[in-house]
Computed example of a mutant assay.
Amino acid sequence: MIYELRIYTMYPGRVDAIRKRFSDHTLSIFARLGMQVCDFWEDLEEQPKLYYTMKYESMEERTRQWEAFSQDKEWNEVKQKSEQDGKIVASVEQIFMKRADYFNG
């Protein structure tokens, strides 16, 4: 199993736009495409950041899922519409992880 931590940094004043996009559209598109989100967080110190983890069987599965997502008609329409007032995401950091064998939590 592979886990991916995704860290999104938003442009100033665009946190509400990313919240709305995820809550109203992106998470349901992920679910429809079989993409599994494990957990989702907002920055405690109110930095313009979101953090979430996803789970995959393999890197090949991850690549297939993200390719399908990037080509999804609904996603592309949502992205375009949500960015009419300007881009939302300044950067995305991706960290790939595997569970430690010695952890039983």
Score class of each variant (00 low, 15 high):
85 D>W: 09
46 E>D: 04
40 F>M: 14
5 L>H: 09
98 K>R: 12
46 E>H: 05
50 L>G: 00
92 V>A: 02
19 R>N: 13
32 R>I: 12
55 K>L: 09
77 E>V: 09
13 G>A: 05
57 E>Y: 07
103 F>S: 12
25 H>N: 07
60 E>W: 08
53 T>Q: 15
5 L>R: 13
98 K>T: 14
23 S>E: 15
70 S>A: 14
23 S>H: 15
35 M>H: 07
43 D>F: 05
41 W>R: 14
92 V>Q: 00
46 E>C: 06
7 I>A: 01
6 R>D: 00
42 E>R: 05
74 E>A: 00
42 E>W: 08
45 E>C: 14
45 E>Y: 13
78 V>N: 01
39 D>N: 11
97 M>D: 00
86 G>S: 02
68 A>I: 08
94 Q>P: 07
11 Y>N: 04
9 T>Q: 01
25 H>M: 02
16 D>M: 12
56 Y>P: 15
26 T>A: 00
92 V>I: 08
79 K>H: 02
14 R>Q: 09
103 F>D: 08
18 I>L: 09
93 E>Y: 00
28 S>M: 10
11 Y>D: 02
18 I>E: 05
97 M>Q: 01
42 E>A: 04
29 I>A: 03
97 M>G: 01
80 Q>Y: 01
12 P>T: 04
32 R>W: 01
102 Y>G: 07
46 E>F: 03
59 M>W: 12
12 P>H: 01
65 Q>G: 03
94 Q>C: 04
98 K>A: 10
10 M>A: 02
47 Q>K: 11
57 E>W: 10
72 D>W: 01
30 F>W: 12
23 S>Y: 15
62 R>C: 08
